[in-house]
Simulated assay, not measured.
Amino acid sequence: MARIIRKTALAALCITAVGAGLVACEDDDEGFLDGLDDNPSVSKPALDGLSGTKKISIQGSSVNVACSGSRTDGKPVVVVLAGLDDDLTTTAAFRKTLSTQHRVCSFDRLGQGKSAKPAGVQSLAAGGKILTGVLDQVAGDTPVVLAGHSLGGLVAARYAPDHQDRVKGLVLLDATSPTTSGDIEKVIPASATGQSADLRAQTAQVAKGQNSEKLAFPDAEVRPAGDIPVEVIQHGTKYLGAFPVYGSGLEKVWAEGQRKWAGISSNSKLSTAAGSAHHIYVDRADLAVKAVQRVTAQVTQ
């Protein structure tokens, strides 16, 4: 039981347990602003009729994209961003449910699923260029709502403030804290030993890009995205609390991180998904779907 709890906690904090040991997942905010608008919007989405998956070229890299549902004038396109070490298959059921009322797309970030592997460590700016290229092709000039889980939520929330012209709403599902490395260091002291020391060290390593996406996501303050509608949903099953010695502290800083994300907009709502662990869109798909529907309804008005 202890091993299962440890593995789940590490996964939520962007680390995974492999075999008998721990390894990093092979999976200045100013820097995030650099070069995000290299791909201009197109008037008509190139993948408007896509139903299923397709590989497209963005910034010279092959990116695996999936779309379903019909685009309706006045309604935003919903783009789902999965967490670290997840891919299009992980969010398939969630997207299928959403597609009954919305045009929904998702993609494997570089290093995820069937997309190309990054050549080296990626900054959030580089990841932002890929996201911009995807939005150009799946949404064009149509407004977008980003629904991000875990690390996908962090990516969405870092991207939105600089793209309020197209990102009109956010749904953040147990998003990785904006200060995840500092959070862990605050809870687990440098003097810790054993698996607690491993968690502290490897959280820092993963945040520096030692993960499957080679994506570095340094701690940074939450920057405002105006008054766009935002729903932040945190897990209700306190599985991090079962981590030896420091579990209650881990739960506390995780909740603090969710409150920080709620500060991204003056029009935000923070709620808890009762009965759900980290993958809220699986454990409580009903809540995740309703959150997306509420946000899209505000965008449509």
Rank of each mutant, 00 (worst) to 15 (best):
D38S: 14
D28H: 11
I233Y: 00
L215S: 04
L173Y: 08
V42F: 01
S150G: 14
L287M: 11
V232I: 13
S115F: 01
A92L: 08
K208P: 02
V289N: 06
G247C: 01
T90L: 10
E221Q: 07
A157L: 09
L170C: 03
A24Y: 13
A46I: 05
I58W: 01
Q164D: 07
Y159L: 06
L84F: 04
A160Y: 02
L270N: 02
A220W: 05
S70F: 13
S43N: 15
G226S: 12
A93C: 08
A204H: 14
E185C: 10
T91G: 09
D29C: 14
I233V: 12
P224D: 10
Q298S: 08
A139T: 12
L81A: 07
T237A: 13
K290P: 06
S266D: 11
G148M: 07
P244E: 06
G35L: 05
C25K: 07
R158A: 04
G209D: 01
A12P: 00
V145G: 00
V42C: 09
N267H: 15
G275F: 01
G152Q: 07
V23N: 13
Q195D: 14
V63Q: 01
A160K: 09
D136S: 05
T176P: 10
D73C: 08
L173C: 01
V65L: 04
S115D: 07
G21H: 13
Q210G: 01
I5T: 15
T300F: 10
C14K: 13
R223H: 12
T193N: 13
S51P: 00
D183Q: 12
L50K: 11
L146D: 00
V65P: 00
V77M: 12
K168T: 04
G194P: 04
C67I: 04
L10Y: 04
N64H: 06
L22E: 14
K44W: 15
G226H: 08
Q195R: 12
A225M: 00
P161C: 04
R71S: 09
E30V: 15
V222W: 06
S196M: 06
A9M: 08
P76E: 00
V79E: 12
D198A: 13
L81E: 01
S57F: 08
D174E: 15
K54W: 03
L135F: 14
V77T: 10
I58C: 06
P244H: 11
I264M: 01
A147K: 06
V42E: 14
R166L: 12
S51T: 12
T8G: 05
S196D: 05
L151H: 05
I15K: 03
L240D: 00
H235D: 12
G52Y: 11
A92Y: 01
V23F: 09
L199A: 10
G236S: 06
A93N: 10
Q112Y: 07
Q205S: 13
K238Q: 11
E26V: 12
Q293Y: 04
V77S: 02
T91R: 02
S57D: 15
V206D: 08
A201N: 15
S177C: 04
Q137M: 08
P45M: 08
V292L: 03
A20N: 15
T16P: 04
Q202L: 15
G169A: 00
Y159I: 03
A255D: 09
G128T: 03
K260M: 14
D219W: 11
D34Y: 11
K208H: 13
